[in-house]
Design a protein around this nucleic acid. Structure first.
Length: 461
RNA sequence: GAGAGCAUAGCUCAGUUGGUUAGAGCGUCGGAUUGUGGUUCCGAAGGUCGUGGGUUCGAGACCCAUUGUUCUCCCCA
């Protein structure tokens, strides 16, 4: 058979893994620095934990796992019946009772609901794991991809938002990606709907204006019309969308426009608090009233990250939700969280050449194989170098130098070590730096000294 | 779920209105070169042309189906 991968999944070669790990490590380190604790949940959940949480479309995109033992003859009748249900579009526990995780938020909510009695609140967790979606793959979109989430639950304090903004800011500064952290508040959007006289149309409004930068003002107005909004309502929304200027200017304008909505004023006050608090300590925090975010469970602050120099969709997002665990019967646990879109962050960094010099190296030294007795003689030295923290490899068989050099060359190994019978007798080691051609026969007694020589030579190249 | 493109060597791709034995570059392997690589030169291996059917004297090319893959819309990270 011809080997292949399931649609929308990828292998990651060693170079790619190192680059991805660099991103993971950077972000993880920052999460830890702010006191977040890691959480891991299973790849699969009970199917009713997931179903109905992501809307009708979402349900279709959940990977469902076929139950085992369906071929048991005793259950044949039940199984046939269950299949009938599935053919009619109903999922049936007889056929499938588990499904692959679709995001990290719902499993987290499930975890909090299950353990709220024993958790210390506010509970701060981060989670970096793959999720699966039965979507049709396309550019920048996969069936298996990683999410990188960080949430605080059990606290309504805006201080959490402040912390999350700083996490975003530091993470992208450390990764050296220029970004704009866009911020808005769902209460302002609710206020807008209220002022338009159509609070029940909040979802229609948010879905439409969320597309502004993608399809433009005219198309948004068209969409609002088809979603049943009147001309005067659309006029108000247009005014809203055209607010421009500095963050302070924008606040003043929005205050005027939505002054009749107490809800909106509350959202404005929250935004003002965040802007004041982070003033001067954050690279680029930008008020953006057109930011809506599709997810309906957001109720307060919402975030989105855009790379400033690369054309790319959002590379992160998040927001505040009042009641996530309510779905699992545990009320009154508000929270706020953010997420990093690491696959896209990878693409941005690749495009900007930001991995240069950041990655941990592969093998540093290759020991040439000059024969069985020579390798045996050199082996204590090899182990000594490894003990000293040098990534060391031995060529697997005694062949002519040409091949061994080419192996080092191809693997990008900077040093080769040659220890033949002569060196062994004299307690020496010959080391050659491939890129520069520098070569020296040195004392082999002190491995730490050799290790040091390797490092100095590397820096001096 | 709807639509479009692509499928030829390990990889990237040529292949003329349908016509002898399907090519190139890169890579791989061997040699020039048994303790000093990268360059160069010489040579070799590698293909049921995605799969199945059809049209034709003749199909890599045309037609139908099928599978895979890429992209767009919907939606999303």
């Amino acid at each position: 058979m011809k080997p292949s991968l399931p649609q929308g999944t990828r292998d990651f070669s060693h170079e790619v893994v190192r680059k991805r790990q660099y991103i993971f490590d950077t972000i993880r380190q920052i999460f830890e620095r702010y006191g977040f604790q890691p959480l891991e949940t299973p790849a699969m959940e009970n199917i009713d934990t997931l179903m109905g949480k992501y809307g009708q479309e979402g349900d279709k995109l959940i990977f469902k796992i076929l139950n085992n033992g369906l071929d048991n003859p005793n259950k044949e009748e039940k199984t046939r019946q269950a299949l009938e249900d599935v053919l009619e579009g109903k999922w049936n526990k007889q056929l499938t009772e588990r499904a692959l995780r679709y995001d990290l938020t719902i499993p987290f909510a499930r975890y909090v609901a299950m353990n709220h009695g024993s958790l210390t609140f506010p509970f701060k967790r981060y989670q970096i794991q793959p999720v699966w979606r039965a979507d049709r793959p396309q550019r920048g979109r996969y069936r298996e991809f990683y999410q990188c989430d960080c949430d605080v639950v059990g606290s309504s304090s805006l201080l959490n938002e402040v912390e999350l903004i700083h996490i975003y800011d530091q993470a992208f500064q450390q990764l050296q990606i220029g970004v704009s952290i866009k911020i808005n508040n769902r209460k302002i959007l609710a206020g807008l709907a209220e002022v338009c006289g159509g609070l029940e149309q909040l979802t229609d409004i948010t879905v439409a204006i969320d597309k502004l930068d993608k399809i433009g003002l005219e198309k948004v107005k068209e969409e609002l019309t088809t979603r049943g909004l009147s001309a005067t309502q659309i006029q108000t929304i247009e005014q809203y969308l055209q607010i421009e200027g500095s963050n302070e200017d924008k606040l003043l304008q929005i205050e005027k426009l939505l002054s009749t909505s107490t809800q909106a004023l509350k959202g404005i006050a929250e935004l003002r608090y965040l802007l004041d608090f982070t003033k001067g300590s954050v690279q680029s925090l930008e008020l953006d009233f057109t930011l809506a975010r599709g997810l309906n469970y957001y109720t307060g602050t919402i975030f989105e990250i855009k790379a400033s120099t690369v054309k790319m969709g959002s590379i992160g997002g998040g927001g505040r939700y009042d009641d996530l665990t309510g779905l699992f019967g545990v009320k009154d646990i508000p929270g706020v969280g953010i997420s990093f879109g690491i696959d896209r962050i990878y693409d941005v960094m690749e495009e900007l050449n930001l991995f240069e010099g950041k990655l941990s190296p592969g093998t540093e030294v290759l020991f040439f194989n000059l024969g069985d007795s020579e390798i045996k003689g050199a082996y204590p030295l090899i182990q000594g170098l490894r003990q000293a923290g040098i990534r060391t490899e031995v060529y697997h068989e005694s062949v002519k130098f040409d091949k061994q050099f080419k192996y080092a060359e191809k693997k990008g190994i900077p040093y080769v070590a040659i220890v033949g019978s002569e060196e062994i007798n004299e307690k020496k080691i010959t080391i050659k730096h491939l890129p520069s051609g520098w070569q020296e026969r040195m004392d082999s007694q002190d491995t730490l000294l050799i290790a040091e020589a390797l490092h100095t030579q590397r820096q001096g190249k």
